[in-house]
Design a protein around this nucleic acid. Sequence first.
DNA 1: TCTGTTGCATGAATATGCCTCATGTTGATC
DNA 2: GATCAACATGAGGCATATTCATGCAACAGA
Lengths: 308, 308
Amino acid sequence: MQQSLLELRHLKTLLALAETGSVSQAAKRVFLTQSALSHQLKALEEHYGLPLFERKTQPLRFTPAGERLLTLAREVGARMAAAERDITRLREGEAGELRIAVECHTCFDWLMPAMDAFRRHWPAVELDIVSGFHADPVGLLLTRRADLAITSEAEPLDGISYQPLFAYDMVVIMANDHPLAGKAVWQAEDFVTETLIQYPVPDAMLDLLCKVLKPAGINPARRTSELTIAIIQLVASRRGVAALPYWAVQPYLDKGYVASARIGADGLQSELYAALRSDDAALGYMQDFLDTVREQSFATLPGLSVLA
Amino acid sequence: MQQSLLELRHLKTLLALAETGSVSQAAKRVFLTQSALSHQLKALEEHYGLPLFERKTQPLRFTPAGERLLTLAREVGARMAAAERDITRLREGEAGELRIAVECHTCFDWLMPAMDAFRRHWPAVELDIVSGFHADPVGLLLTRRADLAITSEAEPLDGISYQPLFAYDMVVIMANDHPLAGKAVWQAEDFVTETLIQYPVPDAMLDLLCKVLKPAGINPARRTSELTIAIIQLVASRRGVAALPYWAVQPYLDKGYVASARIGADGLQSELYAALRSDDAALGYMQDFLDTVREQSFATLPGLSVLA
DNA sequence: TCTGTTGCATGAATATGCCTCATGTTGATC
DNA sequence: GATCAACATGAGGCATATTCATGCAACAGA
């Protein structure tokens, strides 16, 4: 009799809202406009005759009623996902192989929790990381030495299909007492006299170099290190500056170990894609892995943005 | 990325389908057409690339995939209902009073499981049955000696609002060796020489009398008993015949204690409504009680039909 | 104080997709 | 073979979620 109004789309909205803390951000997360979500929330609140959020605050807070619905959303979301996985397994079988090739050092930060969750959901799928870093991870797909490659560019290639994961900002980090430490935005010229501390990878894989410094004719001194934490230490010790994903350095910024700045007026955006053989794109566990990556990453890492 | 398609409406459909065992019946239960459900199911099966049911059988059977979705539907349904109850309590408070007046003897068969479920969901609401059987239960509402009355007619009255519960067929039962025991349908004339065994209630409350026998000018002998089981015994002992709800006698028919027949070519339909003071109609626990009654009754009793 | 910005709300227009209607198909029963 | 019941299917209407175009409020910076 009493129509329930509450639909899955509302629950998804609530989850996005809880994760992002703002209507506009949540809207991006569920691929709708801010207006659409505003209407949704208004409808919900009118239906229940109760406020579900306090809007004036940033991040917005849930009222007890909102919290209750959020709990429901988590319960229902998890069960829906589990059921759909089970159905997929009924159709395609339990087993499979998923060997992942990675070209980016920092990727392990988000890959680990995702792989962890995935292993629980698909115990019979053999999950591997193709060891070492490869200049051409997509090549490994075609030679069938890997089934999935993480790349920062979606270069069209026959038999390869790309799926967006997420986007994020690169920031430059510097010692706290660096002369430019107060500057909110660094331009290319600010790097002229600096030593750039980087992972030991080809120049082509360094966005800062390709997209910002080279176009400005700047070629700073370099120094390499394998480990993120080591790079941070070098920066803090005034051995140079580094460009890293915001989500990789945010904990160190919070603790005040180093300072950071945006790169260029609009920031330096980086993107991540998953590349796979087109034949494999329909595999249930493959899609589920990508969904898991997105979900876990957005839940774990700060400052991510969605990538259409 | 992969749109889920699966919506709450699908889950409700699956539940109705499991309970009724047929698409057409399920459609009535969720107030849609058979066509709508057929479309829904087709969409689901296409989406998952698997059959969810075996249609050729009556009642229709679920495949493993269908079973899995059905399980999901039960889980999700229960949680949605619980959440909405919690929200209602947040808005209206925990407590209240719900005194039920009953005019129909057999009602306890379905009232008991419903009250049981309700007590679990609303522990702080005082639940009572107004003892004794009343000729005018609706009057008890207006004098505030009851908050809800079960009636078989929705007679318009100021300040009273009616809500449909369900409809069902009355059948006539007779001894197995009764001369007319093989007859599928009894007409009014078949009652002429019979003794009618009935509850001790006013004639106005006996549909068989008011709607079938009186119009035909037939007034059979009577005999009364308080208990359904006693009535059945009397009938089996060839002391007369009785008109009872199909769902009340079905277990005895199955065991072969008595035989039954339809009353009139189209059967004798009875309806049940809940009457309440219009002010109370918006009360959350009141609506929830009615929902619970419908849900429990359809799940428990055979041969019910929905009542718009 | 003024102004630009950011984030949310709102009303009207649009578009998506669900449901109904009409009809076809299938299977069972006489 | 005819009839009936239950389900399937395609087309079209219609409800409603979403978008678009604004408005409003809070806040920061000049």
